[in-house]
Structure formats: C-alpha cells, structure tokens
Design a protein around this nucleic acid. Structure first.
Length: 449
RNA sequence: GCGAUCGUAGCUCAGUUGGUUAGAGCGCCGGUUUGUGGUACCGGAGGUCGGGGGUUCGAGACCCCUCGAUCGCCCCA
C-alpha cells in the first residue's frame, strides 16, 4: 500500500495566516470604511470573463495579455480568462448592465486577481487588490477625489514614507505625438540602448523612460517630454488636477517619466511609491508601486461602448499589508475548566456564551491536564482568567477563581457588564456585590449549593 | 521567459575533505518537582535528509534531471 502524497499548493498562491492574515484583513476593513466616506458603491465582480474582455481592453501587445493571463477553454469551447485586473471587467459590466444611467458612478471592490508570473517578494500568481473607479466622469475633479481617497486610505493605514508620483500622458493626440517623438529620438541611438530597450522601442517606447539600465538612463534626461506635446486642453486638465490636489491637501510630486504599462491610459497617470531609503521601500523589496492607476477615457470604446471617460486605481493588498501593523485585539477573557466532570464543561460554555453575548472575546480551555489548560490560557495573554473548579471544601459545589495575569483591568470589568453576573447569580446564587468585587480584584468565589 | 541562492523532525537550523544506529532548540504528548499555577527536570512520539536517476565499497553531503521556495531581471499591484 503506497502512502498518499500530499498535494502541493499551486506555485505563486499563498495560504495567509496569523499576523499576515490580520494585516490583510486590516487593509480590507480600512478600505471598506474609507470608500464609504467617499460614497463609493460596493460592487462584486466575476473572477473570470471572456478572454476578449481583457485582450481588447488592456491591449494585445502588453505583457499582461501576451504572456501573463490564465486562459482556458470551457466545455463549450469558449476562451475564458481569470481576471488579471479589475478595470476591464468593471468596464464590461458598465456596458452590459446599462450602468450609464447611474453615471457618474463611483464603485469599489476587492478580491483575487491572477497573473502567470514568477513569484517574488510582493508578487504572486494569485494576488489581491482593492480597487476604486469613477465611471462616466470626465472632469478633473473626479481624478482629485479619487486620489484624495487613496491618500486618506494610506494615512489611515498608518503607512509612512510613500509619495504620490503624478504625470499626464495627455489626450490621445498628445500621447501619439509624444510617442512618435520618443521613437525618433531613441531610434537614433538604438545601438547604444540596452537589449531590453531596443525591444521596447518596438513594443512600448514610453517604458524606456523608466528603464533602470544605465545605458538607457544617460539618454533619458534629454528625451522629448510630454509637456512639449500637450494640447491646451490636456494642459488645462492636468493643471486642474494638480491645483485640486493642492486644495485637497494631497501631497504629490511630478514624475515626468512615469508611464503606465497598459494601453488604455490617458491624461492622469499616478503611482504611490515608497520614498528611497524609507522603511516602506525596504519592506517591499524590488517592488515599488503599492497603488497605481489613472484615467482611461478610451477603454469603453475598445469594448464596443460609447465614449465614456473614467478614472480609477488599484492597490495590492499584500503589498499594503507588508507596510501596516494590524491593531491587536485588546481584550480577551479565558475560561479554564479545571474539573473533568461534564457539567463543569457545560457551565463553562454557559459562561462563555454569556460573555460573548456581552461582546467579550472569550476562549474556553477544556482539554488536556488542568495544568496544561491553565498554561495554554496564559499563552493567549488574556486580561482575565476564570478558573472553574470542583468543590474543595464542605458545602461547596464549585469554586470560581478569577485571576488577572497581567494587571487588574478595569475595562474588562466594565465590558463584562451584567451578563456573566446574572448567570452566576442564577446558577450559583452569587450576590452581585460579591461578584463585582471578585471580578475587580481577583480571588475565589465559593459556590455553595 | 532569464539569472542567483536554497530544500535535513510540525517550526528554526546543526551535520566537519563522502565513512557506523541522522542531531539540537522550540513546539507537541506523558510524568515528576516547584506548596498557588507562565518555572525546572525526566521521558516519549515524530525524519523514505523535496522527488528521480547517476558516480562510489559506501551519498544527507558529489554529478545530472525534476519539483518547490526565496530573491533579482522583465513586467506589474
């Protein structure tokens, strides 16, 4: 009989547990709270879509589409793809559900995304993002509000040392003119560029601007700048965004070489990036962007819809979680059942139930030797321990010992309220005043029949 | 897709130029002690040394393949 081999987890997936899971939840909870402050409406989206949703929206030549998608055929032979991002699916939903009627529509969501990449620090094949979009809003104030929300979120998460890097890619015409000028400029020095950038020259010349290779960097400084190609409208739009951010108290830095990888971006493009040398930068390894997005006025048309201006961002939950300290649950009550008689287990469960209904996180220890139970309870670092034991003196039916392993804690006394007190009174006839004093100071209650 | 490092107990790791029966700490289980419980001590369970092949009298150590992990490149959140 051969031993069954335990299957391994899929490469690049994570089983998140413990402090990491708490940090993850803290990010999501904070996002949910902040998005409500800005009245973004919650949406739930499918995890997979027809492949064309992504290939048309994101662009066939992008890395995401050309080599990172999890695509498969369903039983009907249709090509489906696990979503590599939120925006394309939301745009599809906007069109197929007639959400034009709600425009301008502010929506927020979060969940898993999938990209077939080599995993490394802060990058996974299944990863998770929070996402916010404003659909059907062409005015720069939408960009400002969206960024103000992102800025507030990071502050409420307690993330320090991160700066909003902001750029404009101009409108469609500006972007094309700039792109043409960049190709002309870099083509002239083609042979001196890095191999990667010679490749980029064909596929995505804008990306040469933020190449890390020193062979490229020496040419980047003198490369044509978007500002030279901005139309009056595009310039006015960007000015409105920047002055709006100043008014909203959002700090930002101009990043002329910031371009975003996906085809659909127009006008505003931005990333929140840790400052060099900061603790955040160290925690993230080579991954720098924690939140990124921009305006995608052309996207709806690529999906066959009417021209619809929109702007949005997404942030990696794992990356944010690496930068936050989740608040720990402050108050815990541990109930240790010392006697092995079954009825003590039941009394312990009644006590726990009463305490939990009163809002106190409560743990019950009822397995292993009495000493082990107590030791385990101590390791949970509770504010108070109730030890429920059998009778030790004549006339006793049970005794309850209350201990404060750390220091006497007023809060837990207040938080307990009357629920356990009432329980003790009804089960054992303990007077209120006595209970109050015992809980407060620690000690033993003798429970008489 | 490319590169570097790594893979020994549940966890963190030792394991000497290849040489008897593969070790420690923590954790887990059991017990003793401490006369009021987080300590200390004793004992126990737990390993096909990631998997496969090769070299050798002999491989956890060396070689090849493979899977996985970590970090970096590309790209991205």
């Amino acid at each position: 009989m051969s031993k069954i081999k335990t299957p391994q987890a899929i490469r690049g997936t994570q089983d998140i547990f413990g402090a990491d899971a708490e940090a993850f939840a803290f990010v999501v909870e904070t996002f949910e709270r902040v998005r409500k402050l800005y009245r973004f409406r919650r949406v739930e989206m499918p995890v997979f879509e027809k492949t064309e949703v992504f290939s048309r929206a994101i662009g066939e030549t992008t890395d995401v589409v050309s080599k990172e998608m999890y695509s498969f055929e369903d039983r009907g032979g249709e090509s489906l793809t696990l979503r590599p991002e939120f925006t394309a699916g939301i745009a599809r939903a906007f069109l197929t559900n007639g959400w034009q009627q709600h425009a301008p529509l502010k929506v927020a969501t979060h969940g898993p995304l999938f990209r077939y990449e080599r995993p490394q620090k802060g990058r996974y094949r299944q990863f998770h993002q929070i996402d916010a979009e404003i659909l059907g809003a062409g005015e720069p104030q939408a960009d400002v509000e969206l960024l103000a929300m992102a800025d507030q979120l990071l502050k409420e998460l307690g993330i320090e040392g991160v700066t909003l890097h902001l750029n404009t890619l101009g409108d469609g015409d500006s972007r094309e003119a700039w792109r043409a000028a960049l190709i002309e400029y870099f083509a002239a020095v083609r042979g001196e560029l890095s191999e990667d950038s010679q490749e980029r020259l064909e596929k995505n010349p804008l990306r040469i601007l933020d190449s890390k290779d020193p062979r490229d960097r020496k040419f980047v400084g003198d490369a044509p700048r978007i500002d030279q190609f901005l139309s009056d409208d595009a310039r006015a739009f960007f000015d409105a965004v920047t002055t709006g951010l100043d008014a909203a108290g959002v700090k930002w830095a101009r990043a002329e070489s910031l371009v975003r990888g996906l085809d659909y971006y127009r006008h505003t493009a931005f990333e929140f990036i840790p400052d060099e040398g900061s603790a955040a930068a160290a925690a993230l390894g080579s991954q720098s962007t924690i939140l990124g997005g921009g305006r995608y006025d052309g996207l709806m048309e690529s999906l066959g819809g009417a021209p619809t201006p929109a702007v949005g961002w997404a942030a990696g939950i794992e990356r944010l979680a690496m930068l936050v300290q989740a608040p720990t649950d402050s108050m815990t009550l541990a109930i240790v059942i010392e006697d092995k008689e079954l009825r003590f287990n039941n009394i312990g469960q009644m006590m726990a139930s009463a305490c939990r209904k009163a809002g106190i996180p409560t743990l019950v220890y009822s397995s292993g030797s009495p000493k082990k139970r107590y030791d385990k309870a101590l390791k949970a670092n509770p504010n108070a321990i109730f030890v429920l034991g059998g009778p030790e003196a004549d006339g006793e039916v049970a005794r309850l010992t209350i201990r404060h392993p750390n220091s006497p804690d007023e809060d837990i006394v207040a938080a307990l309220g009357h629920a356990p007190m009432n329980l003790m009174r009804s089960v054992f006839g303990v007077p209120d005043a006595y209970w109050q004093r015992i809980v407060h100071d620690g000690g033993t209650v003798s429970l008489l029949s």
